[in-house]
Amino acid sequence: MSGLIERLPPLRWTAALLRRLGLRGRSVVIAVPFLWLLVFFLVPFLVVAKISLSEAAIARPPFTPLLEWDGLRAIVTLNFGNFAFLFDDPLYLNAYVSSLRIAFVSAVITLFVGYPIAYYIARSPEGRRSILLTLVILPFWTSFLLRVYAWQGFLRSNGVINNFLLWAGIIDQPLVMLQTNFAVYLGIVYTYLPFMILPLYANLVKLDESLLEASADLGGRPAATFFHVTLPLSMPGVIAGFMLVFVPAIGEFVIPELLGGPNTLMIGRVLWNEFFSNRDWPVASAVAIAMLVILVVPIMILRNAQAKTEES
């Protein structure tokens, strides 16, 4: 059998070239992904931090440089005004608080919806398990934007839900659901549900059934077994799923924009408007830095939960 290297000459040539250059394979293999992420993931945050300290200007690009030469020396102008502005204008503080609240409540609801589903799938016979899992993941492969758009059609005043309720005679006035915070919660729960179910399932499927039997043998009622055995053991899955919903939902833009009303304040939307409508790049950068500071703690919690899952 001839290997891939023989069949693909470019691979062979690249390997030979690297050997000729005296580069050890190991360091090259480390360097490629490392440099990519360094340049395109880490360095951009430094650029954002830099621009958050400059001032908006009518120029291309629309901000003042931090560093200027007056011929002899470099003049560094740092402007903390953008951050002061974030604290002065209640809009920003309200947007942060409101984003955290919306993301937290949605993550809690997603947990309550996702846990029974994950539990049911994990306890199903093996053949049915993979079919149910595919059904959970399938919507994730279709466009996120189109799924949010589908909810618009469901929730509007002449939409599917209102038409059904009017037809059934349950209501005689259409309910206002679109452009409310309720629609935003619904949209987040809907689009992030697979991210909750998958880590929970991965955890629950590994649960040792003999522990449940032991608890039952010792006279534990199903509810007691659940709260004293199943739930504590599935905590790493709960934390991972919760954070995978909570953290990205804080910065969500599409859902509040398409389902929320003008009063739905979320920080991702504020950043978008600062950038695209006001064209104030420095303030948008300051908003991003402040958002990152808020995200650090939940991201650390997520990493710890994942590390624990890997150990077990």
Partner: peptide
């Protein structure tokens, strides 16, 4: 994996 899109987008554009 968990970075909000708006931050990834803005930071890369500025880069």
């Amino acid at each position: 994996l968990v970075m909000p899109d708006v931050i990834t987008g803005l930071s890369l554009l500025l880069l």
